[in-house]
Design a protein around this nucleic acid. Structure first.
Lengths: 135, 135
DNA sequence: GCGACTTTGACAACGATTTTCATTTACGCG
DNA sequence: CGCGTAAATGAAAATCGTTGTCAAAGTCGC
């Protein structure tokens, strides 16, 4: 019973962007892995706890996870159409967060920053499909 | 049947920080308002759509709403202990988001920024209560 | 007042996540 | 080596916020 965490982590590592728990579960089952949904959730949470994966909530309330290339702090730039993700560092934001925090007397400041946009290829694609937004 | 949206909006206006839909619903019922959960959700969404309230997801996937003092873009500095919220503007972040976005060929850039921290009074309080966290 | 359209709200449906609990597995100990 | 205990696992049920359905009630123009 090798730690299923490793199996789950492996899936995330071979994935490009963020994956939902259900998604990871589905893929593992598809690959023939014998694992339960419960275990996937537990593994994902454990992984997130020890900082081996990033975890965030999508706008529709689903938790998505991603194996980070590095353990250091960074943010994500996500294409709202195709989901492509780019890791970005933002010293400016870090400093800004610290600053506004302390200005208001806050300590132990953390922050959540997600940048969304439409990536080059998707905006191309949209230009064609669009033009019919009547509202 | 005056628009229930107004009633819902009123609740948010007289609230300090973010309120969950269920929370708002509970308060309205407590005040004697005859309104259904469904309607609260619909009102909240409508309000969020037209930008009269801010909407974001808490870490446990709940949607929370808040009537903004202004309609313009800003972010929030939230005390992770008492929930006190301060609206902060961050031109630096706006620019940064735009920059990293375009650097990667992204367009129509939006961003989510939430800053969390422990406010002055809470960190005081925690200092005393603390000292016993063995894990 | 009547009819068409909109809003409302009770309740069911949904879906993601968590909990429960019995089973299986790992592993130290006798 | 077999046993017992504790941890891990997974199937299914429970939870809970949110959304959809649909009939009843309200609004408005005629």
């Amino acid at each position: 019973m090798s730690n299923r965490r490793d199996a789950v982590h492996a899936i995330l590592r071979q994935s490009e962007g963020f994956r939902s728990a259900q998604d990871v579960y589905a893929e593992m089952r598809a690959e023939g892995a014998k694992i339960g949904l419960t275990t996937v959730y537990r593994a994902l949470q454990a992984l997130a706890d020890i900082g081996h994966v990033d975890m965030l909530r999508t706008d529709d309330g689903e938790s998505v996870y991603r194996a980070c290339a590095s353990g250091h702090h960074h943010h994500h730039l996500v294409c709202r159409t195709c989901g492509r993700t780019v890791e970005v560092a933002g010293p400016a934001v870090e400093r800004w967060a610290e600053t506004v925090g302390s200005e208001h007397g806050f300590t132990e400041i953390t922050h959540t920053v997600e940048v969304f946009g439409t990536c080059a290829s998707c905006s191309e694609a949209l230009k064609m499909a669009g033009a019919s937004s009547s509202f």
